[in-house]
Design a protein around this nucleic acid. Structure first.
Lengths: 352, 352
DNA sequence: TGCGGGTCGGTAAAGGTTTACCCGCATGCT
DNA sequence: AGCATGCGGGTAAACCTTTACCGACCCGCA
């Protein structure tokens, strides 16, 4: 059950034999780690080419103690925000010729543990983690951080010291609440929160900040998914809600909310205003385009690259980098700046 | 620039020393590769536990010639269909304790080549590829297939023999065209195609089949992205199109089409009917819910697992597995079965 | 001419495992 | 009692690199 002919694996010895030199010379030519006489160099190069030599990175990593790769562990690839982060981390690191290997923990602590263990066993040079759970992932993150430079991304596990790169969720949510307050005050319509259970630091921080701004507002909690957004909205409508501003803590949830609103014949933003968080690709294509909070993803992933590269040189224990980027509010049609009617006009101008 | 204290790496020798046995015994205990006297076994186990031993998988893989991992290379993680495939491949393989490492080629042939080279260098036990380009990826795929069991997924590179798992795109598109033809014939409205350039086999097959069914229909071609779907629809509307059935070859494109239609004030499905392909998670939340073609993703990834496992036992060159699953048509509101008015009633029944 | 130093090739060790092979011991059978 | 057998432990080789170290050679300078 394999190809027509699996080529016999060719190693550095084979190349050396064919070129009539020692393996050391081959290695030096291939890695340019020391000058080699032009004639030998050519012989080695063509031998390698003819044999189709492909270095065994296991041997190299074993010897060097470096694998030229990092691991990236996300809780769920189907969450488009994490997919975007993954793509962008790959992009940032590809510039430095460091392979990025992505794993999904599938929102499961045991899988998260296993994946981290495998990454460590394969001696990745760095580990970027988006922990599943604010408290329960702590042990997993700690295990990683003891062996390799570890950067938590977007979410932060409690009580474990590592580098962290994310956005200022409290600031982001404050942008939303103050944006939302104007309309809410004028219309005297309620503000409700639909978001993930605060079991991840980002959900936690966003919910906290919302609760401070609207202490008595109703809150419906669930998971980071389309389905939950939809169910939550169904429930609210079933409870008799007919007009409100719905603040969510993730675009995917907001999309579910909007879908449910539509399917019940409500108009957005006239009946319900909706806001998201993250600014994933789809959100500006939602109908209506989603007001949301944008995170500077490429700056974030560039910072991660910097941390990893810095960890290579200075292996003395410097402090931990903790970087929270300021997110920005992107006001779109799902929750217009002032009153819905004006916004509809703006939309018509824009679209027509 | 590291943790408080990076623990010194503990190897099998350390465990052996602490347990007062030889490294062979340690290895045998840890892998249960041969029976060991209970007393020694316990000593080894507790020694390993106390030292926090974590096997170096590089050493193991080097020795065994197997890494207990496979690579999965996708063209673009931000395409939700590929994200779903990736997630599901991970799930299937996690049951067999084989790590799945995901890389994104970012739709770039050179990155694709590099990623495959790295996977091979790290001696993955199998490689699952979704080639970027039907013709230009051939060399990359071939390189992989010469070294390791290679399965092409969803897309098939021309003129290179490997295993293949995908869906019957022609059948899927025929389901769409015959579904669409009824309405089109009645309403005498045009049918247009909006889809990706036929540079991948799936795009190719879908376009082909559509063209056979509607030879004179207009076609707008671009990339597998929201943005393209939107631009294409903008262009069509600018050209004066006011009512039509828009057949797309991917849900993400369909979502772009719908968004653009909405933003110009058209009603869907009354003015424009729209169909997608793939049935990604968002599509049933689209407004209106998207008619699309569903691929049996979990069956597909289970098949991949079977192929890889089979390749472990029988390393004699058996033939290649080529499996095309029959997709199914999922009719939703974006393109109702018969006439739009009836469909709106159905929607109301369903939603209310 | 003799010697110091620089250049560059080779030899061998090291990195962490698994496993083929060997050996000692105990057991059981004749 | 003697021998075959088998169980279970250890030693060392092998997997594929990189690289420290050595040594040969050449050049230039005194």
């Amino acid at each position: 059950m394999a190809g027509s002919q699996m080529l016999p694996k060719v190693g550095i010895h084979d190349v050396a034999a064919r070129a009539g030199v020692s393996i050391a010379t081959v290695s030096r030519v291939l890695n340019q780690s020391r000058p080699v006489a032009p004639e030998l160099r050519d012989r080695v190069m063509s031998a390698a080419l003819e044999l189709g030599y492909n270095a065994n990175l296991l041997g190299r990593a074993l010897r060097q103690g470096r694998s030229h790769s990092i691991g990236l562990l996300v809780p769920d690839l189907e969450n488009p925000f994490f997919a975007t982060l993954a793509q962008q981390v790959s992009r940032s690191f590809s510039r430095s010729n460091i392979d990025v290997y992505i794993c999904s923990a599938d929102n499961d602590l045991e899988l998260e543990r296993r994946a981290i263990g495998s990454f460590l066993g394969r001696r990745v040079d760095g580990l970027v983690l988006i922990p599943c759970d604010e408290t329960l992932s702590a042990a997993n993150v700690r295990m990683a951080s003891l062996s390799v430079v570890t950067i938590q991304l977007d979410r932060l596990a409690k009580a474990v010291k590592t580098h962290y790169v994310g956005c200022d969720n409290r600031h982001g949510m404050r942008l939303v609440t103050s944006h939302v307050r104007e309309v809410a005050d004028l219309s005297r319509q309620p503000v409700v929160f639909v978001g993930a259970h605060p079991t991840s630091s980002s959900a936690h921080e966003r919910l906290d900040t919302f609760a401070k701004a609207f202490p008595s507002a109703q809150r419906v909690l669930g998971s980071f998914s389309f389905e939950f957004g939809r169910e939550a909205m169904e429930r609210l409508i079933r409870q008799g809600l007919r007009a409100a501003t719905v603040v969510t803590d993730a675009d995917i949830i907001a999309l579910g909310v909007i879908a449910s609103g539509h399917s019940h014949g409500f108009a957005i933003p006239e009946d319900f205003r909706v806001t998201g968080f993250d600014d994933v690709g789809v959100s500006f294509l939602a109908q209506p385009a989603l007001t949301t909070v944008r995170q500077p993803v490429d700056q974030m992933t560039d910072t991660i690259l910097d941390i990893v590269l810095a960890s290579f040189d200075a292996d003395g224990q410097t402090g931990y980098v903790v970087k929270r980027f300021k997110p920005t509010l992107v006001v779109r049609d799902s929750s217009p700046a002032h009153d819905p009617v004006a916004a509809v006009d703006a939309d018509a101008r824009d679209g027509g």
